[in-house]
Amino acid sequence: MTITDWLMLNMRRLGEAKVDAPRRDCLVLLEDTLNKDRAWVVAHPEHTLQTDTLHKLDKLISRRINREPLAYIRGKAWFYGRFFEVNPHVLIPRPESENFIELLKQLVENRQQTADSRSKLQVIDVGTGSGCLAVTAKLELPHAEVIATDIDEKALEVAQANAKKHRINIILLKGSLLGPISNLKPPTSNLVIIANLPYVPSSLVTSPEIEAEPAGALFSGKDGLDHYRKFWHQVSSLKTKPKYILTESLEQQHKDLEILAKNADYKIAKINLLTQVFTLSR
């Protein structure tokens, strides 16, 4: 069977299973299995696939037909120009979450123009999951100290694997949200908290793929804000509060999130798509 024959057959199979992008998924699985890039695969439609290759591909396609997320099948996901290891213990990184890194870099750029730049920046990633945000923050801002927390031991193992993969050192702490770092006492102006917490309302299931991801990393009660309520309550109790807090939420949640932040003495400074920047009011 040639690449063209295989593509035609399995694009149809994925289409019948109502997979969103059958051609893309087929090409990605071909690239991974053949260890070739997209350009090579597309340029060699007449290439004959060997029997063992076909067996491997059939197993992968069967998993995708069952609506297992492509990232879990591959064991990796693309985020901010790099691959990160993923498995069913962690949420698959979303492209929109790259806004955290862009906003963080903007804050650092602004900081360099002030007296704050004389002391070390500390970034805390709350609910790190795969560690994609914490690891990327360290790669993009190598002079910063990066701490990442998660309540799930298996998630922390994935985060550690990604830190090792990208050859950086971050501090990983187990616990619920801000619990592990509640006694830290860094200078307020040099601490930024990233909180990409679950915010999907429990009734909002948009695809079978979402149901394959860890529910605790996605859903957060009826209105999707249960985790943020706990988070902002913890923030209000911190001995030393960070100058900036970055969050992610749906547009319809923005007003309620601003109220939660206000009760913790924070105000909205910027909104970039789904990502918000809060700054200490006083």
Rank of each mutant, 00 (worst) to 15 (best):
R63V: 00
A134P: 01
C132W: 00
L141T: 11
N87A: 15
E85D: 14
R111E: 03
A148V: 00
V135I: 11
V86L: 05
S119T: 15
A144P: 10
G131T: 00
W78S: 08
N99Q: 07
D125L: 11
T149E: 11
H143F: 13
E102S: 09
A144I: 13
Q106T: 13
A77P: 01
E102R: 13
N66G: 12
E109T: 14
G129W: 10
L141C: 13
V126P: 06
S130P: 07
A155Y: 04
G127N: 03
L107Q: 00
N99Y: 01
I101N: 04
R118H: 14
T149W: 14
A144L: 13
A144H: 11
A159M: 11
L70E: 02
A148F: 05
G75W: 11
A155P: 13
I92Y: 02
Y80L: 02
L91Y: 12
S130R: 04
L139C: 09
I101R: 01
A134E: 02
K138Y: 12
R82V: 05
A163E: 12
G75P: 00
E140Q: 13
A163R: 09
P69G: 05
S97G: 07
G131N: 02
P93T: 14
N110V: 06
I92R: 02
Q112M: 10
E157N: 09
N110S: 06
H89A: 14
V158C: 02
N110D: 07
E96D: 14
A71L: 02
K154M: 11
Q112E: 14
Q112G: 15
A71F: 03
N87C: 12
R74Q: 10
K154A: 14
R82F: 08
V123M: 01
W78F: 15
K154W: 04
Q122V: 05
E102M: 04
N66F: 04
L139W: 08
A155Q: 08
L139E: 06
Y72V: 01
T128K: 13
P95N: 07
Q106S: 11
A148M: 01
Q122M: 12
E68L: 15
V126A: 06
Q113H: 12
V126N: 06
E96K: 05
F79C: 06
E85Q: 15
Y80R: 00
E85I: 15
A137M: 11
V86P: 02
R67W: 04
L107Y: 00
E140T: 09
F83L: 15
E153S: 12
S97T: 15
K120M: 03
I101M: 09
R74H: 03
E68N: 10
V108D: 10
A161S: 13
A159H: 05
T136G: 02
A159S: 06
G129A: 14
P69T: 05
S97C: 12
N162S: 08
A148W: 07
R118L: 03
H143Y: 14
L107G: 00
S119D: 12
E85H: 15
S117L: 03
L133W: 08
A159T: 00
A159F: 12
S97A: 12
Y72I: 08
A115E: 15
P95V: 08
K120Q: 08
V126D: 02
L91Q: 03
E109Y: 09
D125Y: 11
Y72S: 00
I147M: 02
Q122E: 06
A77S: 06
E68R: 06
E98F: 01
A159Y: 07
E145R: 10
G81E: 06
A134T: 04
S97K: 04
V146T: 09
